[in-house]
C-alpha cells in the first residue's frame, strides 16, 4: 500500500487532464468494487456493497486533480508561455522543473540575478513574463514536441523518510489513497466513493458526482493548509502536521454539519484517534458543492494537515494518514448505520 501512495502522487493529473490517475485508480479498485463508471466530466463513481444495507446513503469523496501549468503560447525563440491551473503562489515557480505527458522536461527560468536591476532582483515575475524553457531553438522547434494547451506538472520527487512524506499532488491523492484503501477492506455497510475531477478549478467534478449519487451524507477526504512553520505566529498556524485529523466548523465554502462534527469528536475520544480543529476560516473544498447538492447533503470534511500545498513539494506526516483513515472509516459506519 505504501507504494500505492507514491504511484498515485507521482502520476500526472492536472485539472481537466485526470485520465492517467483515473486509470491507475480503476486498476486498483476494480476487483473490490461492485459497480464503477466514469461520468461525462471524468469523475470515477464507485459503489461497494458492505455486509449490511445502509440506513443512510453515504458518499465519500476525494479529488483526483492537482494544480499545474498549461501552455498558452510559444514565443518566436521557442519559450513556452503558461498560465496556472488552480491556485499557485508565483513565488514557488521560478527555477522549478516541470514535465509534460510526452516526457519532455523544462524549467521555469529567471533572468540571471547578476544582470538584474535592484528592483528585478527581489521581484517575482508575472505570468506573462515567466517562461518554460525546454531547450527549443524556435517556435517551430518547440511545436514539434509541445502543443498549445499542453499541461505541465511539477517534476515528481517523492520521499518517505519514515516520519513524513514529501511529494507533489498530496492534495488530494492522499484522499484518493485512503478511499482505495477503504474499498479494499470489508465494509460494514454499502457505500459510494467518488473520485472527483476539477476540484482545483471550481469544484466542478464533485458537483455532478453528488448529483448522480444523491446521498444523504457525505465525507470529503482532503488535505488542508498547515502553516506550522517558522515566522507564522502560533495563532495563525491553522493546523499542525503530526497532530492528527483536521476538522473545521467552517471554511470559505461550507458550514459543516454539527452532528457529524460531534460524532467525529466522540469517536476520536472513544478510539484514541488524534483530532484537531482547524483554527482559521480559510480555504475550501468539494464539500462546498456537495452540501448544496439537490435538496442538501449533510457533509463533513476530514483533512490531513499538509504543509506547502499547491507546490512541487508538499509535506504530510504518516501518522496523520492513519488518523484520518481510521476516523473516516469509523464515522462512515456510524452514519451509514443510522447511529448518528
Amino acid at each position: 500500500m505504501d507504494n500505492l501512495l507514491k504511484k498515485i502522487c507521482t502520476a500526472r493529473g492536472i485539472s481537466g487532464d485526470e485520465g492517467s490517475v483515473r486509470e491507475i485508480i480503476i486498476n486498483e479498485i476494480k476487483d473490490f468494487a461492485d459497480e464503477y463508471y466514469t461520468d461525462n466530466l471524468g469523475n470515477l463513481i464507485v459503489f461497494k456493497k458492505g455486509k449490511k444495507r445502509p440506513v443512510k446513503k453515504l458518499m465519500i469523496s476525494a479529488h483526483m486533480d492537482e494544480v499545474g501549468l498549461i501552455v498558452t503560447d510559444v514565443t518566436g525563440d521557442g519559450y513556452l508561455r503558461f498560465d496556472e491551473v488552480g491556485g499557485i503562489d508565483r513565488r514557488v515557480l521560478p527555477g522549478r522543473r516541470v514535465v509534460f505527458s510526452n516526457g519532455v522536461s523544462g524549467v521555469i527560468g529567471v533572468k540571471p540575478i547578476h544582470l538584474c536591476t535592484s528592483d528585478e532582483r527581489n521581484a517575482i515575475p508575472k505570468y506573462g513574463s515567466m517562461f518554460i524553457d525546454i531547450g527549443a531553438e524556435s517556435r517551430e522547434d518547440a511545436l514539434t514536441h509541445i502543443s498549445l494547451g499542453a499541461c505541465a506538472c511539477f517534476e515528481p520527487l517523492y520521499e518517505d523518510n519514515g516520519f513524513t512524506i514529501k511529494s507533489k499532488a498530496i492534495d488530494d491523492r492522499a484522499g484518493c489513497f485512503m478511499m482505495i484503501k477503504m474499498l479494499r477492506t470489508e465494509l460494514e455497510y454499502d457505500m459510494y466513493f467518488t473520485f472527483a475531477v476539477q476540484e482545483e478549478v471550481g469544484l466542478n467534478g464533485a458537483k455532478t458526482a453528488a448529483y448522480s449519487v444523491n446521498p444523504d451524507f457525505a465525507i470529503v477526504l482532503e488535505s488542508t493548509t498547515a502553516a506550522d512553520v517558522p515566522g507564522v505566529a502560533e495563532a495563525k498556524q491553522v493546523c499542525n502536521v503530526g497532530d492528527g485529523a483536521v476538522i473545521g466548523y467552517m471554511d470559505r465554502r461550507t458550514i459543516y454539519d454539527r452532528g457529524m462534527i460531534n460524532g467525529a469528536v466522540r469517536l476520536s475520544e472513544e478510539k484514541g484517534i488524534k483530532l484537531q480543529f482547524k483554527r482559521a476560516v480559510a480555504g475550501g473544498n468539494d464539500a462546498g458543492v456537495i452540501h448544496q447538492s439537490r435538496s442538501g447533503v449533510r457533509t463533513l470534511a476530514i483533512s490531513l494537515p499538509c504543509r506547502y500545498l499547491h507546490a512541487q513539494q508538499s509535506l504530510i506526516a504518516k501518522s496523520d494518514i492513519d488518523d484520518v483513515y481510521n476516523l473516516a472509516l469509523l464515522l462512515s459506519a456510524e452514519i451509514a448505520g443510522g447511529r448518528l
Binding site: D89, V92, N161, K166, T225, A227, V229, H310, L315
Partner: peptide
C-alpha cells in the same frame, strides 16, 4: 537529507 524550503500555500 532531503529538505524543503518553507513557504505558505496560496490559501493563506
Amino acid at each position: 537529507l532531503n529538505g524543503i524550503i518553507c513557504c505558505m500555500p496560496p490559501h493563506l
